[in-house]
Amino acid sequence: MIYELSDIEIASPSVVRQSAQDFARALAETQQYTAFLTAVEQLRNDKEAQQAIAVFQEKQKSLQMSNMSGELPPEEQAELERLHQAFINKPSVEAYFQTQDDLMEICQEAAQHLSRTIGVNYPSACNAGCCG
């Protein structure tokens, strides 16, 4: 059956925008969102963790500059790995990644639900590019 748009009740752009804002508010009220924000704040204020991240990034950068091609010597690889472990094992860094994973899990679940209902894949539609 061919129908005209005038025969159908259309949700106005302002109504859809409002429901998008309501959705964002509901997401912001979840335990996962508040835990993530807390973890971000704690990481930001953790001077030791910030220092460990900076040292790792500095080392990574200097190795990239001095070794543009070819593999890293084993001792440099081991040092980089040690510095990486030194920052990812900080409690505030662990909490940051854990709460980020938890938040992503409910966001993905919500996006899957949206995709199923509207018949359009939300991640595909809203993320330019794919796999890096």
Binding site: E9, V16, F23, A110, T117
Partner: peptide, 12 residues
Amino acid sequence: ATNALAENLLAS
């Protein structure tokens, strides 16, 4: 809120 958003998107 997810259901409401999906319904309104479908009706847009």
